[in-house]
């Protein structure tokens, strides 16, 4: 009896040990590729900056974090808020939020359309959605530039037809950044939305219509609450990379319309201020995590309220 229990207990222990071995590769990758580098960045952010980039190792200072929010005047040493950083931060959050909303508004009908096609056609539509991924992001962004620059396709066409006589300045504006990010991230919104809508039982929409709900109420009261997981997933997939976007604001926003990604790059490059760059990176990560927390909480509350 006790012997049997011992054998069982030993088998259970062995089983648990084996499970650790099985998950070891994943754990190693997570530590080496995600948590390790993050830890290095945290270390860099609290060290003294080197004279030509890099940091002075094992000399610690809060200067990097101080400079995230404040700046010290070069001549009289007065401390003031780092307005530039704050405005870049604000614009990053704003642009990422607008991008998320715009892709949601455009992506929902698209995903709905695909999900309501006959089953064998849906694959074709999904395939079409993924085509932009085949081309490198840089090339796509340059292509957008070609279309919207002052001597680009759109302006030339409009001037030829006589609709305008001065080219419209689109490039190097926030609008251009939104356009570029919306275009790049739209598929990331459509795919999770589609995955949710595809599982949606459209007989429920019929049932709601039968119970006197007009189409906008069917959408708001039945479809949206039920595809909320897809909306949340799509919004996260769009918001997170938008907030840290680098290529798009760099190419379409020009040198003046910076976003957080560009600001961080600047610190590691021309700025030669690695601690500040590291502190900004950690701040970005924190902002992303905080926004996700708030967003997911709010989304699950909407779901709860509707049912």
């Amino acid at each position: 009896m006790t012997q049997a229990q011992d054998i069982i207990r030993a088998a259970a222990r062995r089983d648990i040990r084996n499970r650790w071995w099985l998950s070891a590769p994943a754990l190693v990758i997570i530590f080496l590729a995600a948590i390790g580098p993050l830890f290095v960045v945290v270390l860099y952010s609290v060290m003294v900056k080197g004279d030509y980039g890099d940091v002075k190792y094992w000399q610690f200072s809060g200067q990097g974090w101080f400079e995230v929010l404040f700046e010290r005047d070069m001549f009289d040493n007065t401390v003031s808020f780092a307005d530039a950083h704050l405005s870049i931060l604000w614009r990053s959050v704003k642009l990422a939020a607008i991008t998320t909303i715009v892709t949601l508004i455009l992506g929902f009908p698209t995903a709905y359309f695909i999900a309501t096609r006959p089953r064998h056609r849906r694959d074709l539509w999904l395939f079409l959605i993924t085509i932009p991924f085949w081309t490198n992001l840089l090339i796509r962004t340059f292509a957008i530039q070609e279309v919207f620059r002052n001597e680009g396709l759109l302006n030339v066409a409009l001037m030829r037809t006589g609709l305008i006589d001065q080219p419209i300045q689109i490039m190097f504006t926030d609008f251009a950044i939104l356009l570029g990010m919306g275009y790049v991230y739209l598929p990331l919104m459509v795919l999770p939305l589609y995955a949710s809508l595809e599982k949606f039982d459209f007989r429920l929409a019929e049932a709601a219509a039968d119970l006197y709900a007009n189409s906008s109420r069917v959408l708001r009261r039945i479809i949206v609450p039920m595809v909320m997981p897809g909306i949340v997933a799509g919004s996260i997939l769009v918001f997170v990379p938008s907030l840290g976007a680098y290529v798009t604001p760099r190419l379409l926003g020009g040198g003046k319309n910076l976003m957080l990604g560009n600001l961080i790059e600047l610190q590691f490059g021309q700025g030669r201020n690695w601690p500040l760059g590291s502190a900004l990176s950690i701040s970005l990560t924190a902002i992303v995590m905080l926004s996700l927390l708030v967003y997911v909480r709010a989304a699950s509350k909407t779901e709860a309220r509707h049912g």
Binding site: D201, E206, A208, D210, N214, I222, M226
Partner: peptide, 17 residues
Amino acid sequence: HERPVNTVFQSYALFPH
């Protein structure tokens, strides 16, 4: 939604949320 007619569906189609 404009018809004073209601349906009991074969699948029931109850709103799960």
